[in-house]
Design a protein around this nucleic acid. Structure first.
Lengths: 195, 195
DNA sequence: AAGATAAACGAATGTTCGTTCTTTTAAAAA
DNA sequence: TTTTTAAAAGAACGAACATTCGTTTATCTT
């Protein structure tokens, strides 16, 4: 018998991401996707039950990679300043390495398709909670409700990313947010949160 | 002759926003929109040239209201702390008053449909630039590249808004981010930016 | 009240959608 | 090599899509 091609599943997923980023969610039709992946539309249904299933699997795969990349060289036991900086660097590298994934996530996050539940207790979230809990216990930073801490620690970072990404997608291509600029913003965040 | 109903144009726009927020961009079909607005689909084409034109006009109308609301009681000559707090309050009230508009914008912002150009020189942007320029000249805040200043001034605010909005859309309905919590986050932002 | 005009409609256009069915093809098992 | 099995393809389905067209209807002008 003929074997299921493992790469083909990934190929379909990646092409779906590319199409969605290029043309939005309406742009992802099964026939367009088939053409982009050099397949018959019906072949997609061997690997995915339906369009909805495909979207879900894409979302899951993207999230998995994100969680993996963002935990590199990170330990919840790190000092707050070191650990948060590592997070900023990891997220920055993630955006650079998987720009399409990032754009896809940004679109998916605000779409009504998303199932807001069940994402609560990922090992990723657990690590993050432990990290901030440690920092507060050690009195490295002020004691704050988690969402305020989170808002200050990452809000400026993501606006910075979005700004530079929009900037580069408008004019010439290369995305460059200098590490110096990131450090500057990071310094201000630390200043705000320091106990 | 029969007169064009001015309210009908607004009605169509508002129903379009509601549909998009509920079901995403694919959810906005002309026939569904017609049914939601109690119209024949062809009637929509009296007021809008095409689906694309409709989306553009919706975007423009939403943006206009936003700019109007957010400039209330605001003057670029204000002190930084007073002016930025007024901005936070205005934006908070905007989200409360037009929650659908906010959700629509969040979806539209990350969609490939948006035309990134030509939004540069709105009177709104001009006021904001003057405001931060004043604050730096008066040495109220540290001298920073505009995008870093912007990232710190608004990043935490919008993450806070998103968090509480998601929270309320999941469980029971009412959206409540207490002014006390906003003040707490605001205090940290000011601490970070103070010269 | 009569006529004019544009708003409003329902029906129909051709296209594209997601999905399924039947057939062909290729590779693993015999 | 032959048989078997599932992957892959292609044609086909009804449904829904954006848009247009010819007719009807309401309201203004006269």
């Amino acid at each position: 018998m003929r074997l299921r091609d493992e790469n083909k599943e990934t190929l379909i997923r990646e092409q779906a991401i590319a199409l969605i980023v290029q043309e939005g969610f309406d742009g992802l039709s099964m026939q367009k996707l088939a053409k982009a992946a050099n397949l018959s539309a019906s072949t997609i249904y061997i690997y995915f039950k339906s369009r909805e299933d495909l979207l879900n699997q894409v979302y899951i795969a993207v999230d998995e990679i994100f969680a993996k990349e963002v935990l590199k060289n990170f330990d919840p036991a790190m000092s707050f300043e070191e650990g948060l900086w590592q997070q900023w660097k990891n997220r920055y590298k993630y955006v650079q390495k998987y720009p399409l994934h990032y754009h896809f996530s940004e679109q998916f996050r605000n779409s009504p398709l998303i199932k807001h539940q069940d994402i609560k207790e990922s090992p990723f979230r657990v690590a993050m909670q432990q990290f901030t809990k440690n920092a507060i216990q050690r009195k490295e930073i002020v004691d704050l409700p988690p969402e305020i801490l989170w808002a200050l620690a990452y809000g400026p970072f993501y606006i910075l990313i979005k700004f530079h990404l929009d900037q580069s997608s408008m004019g010439g291509k290369p995305f460059s947010l200098s590490e110096q600029k990131m450090k500057q913003a990071f310094g201000l965040v630390v200043k705000a949160l320091k106990a």
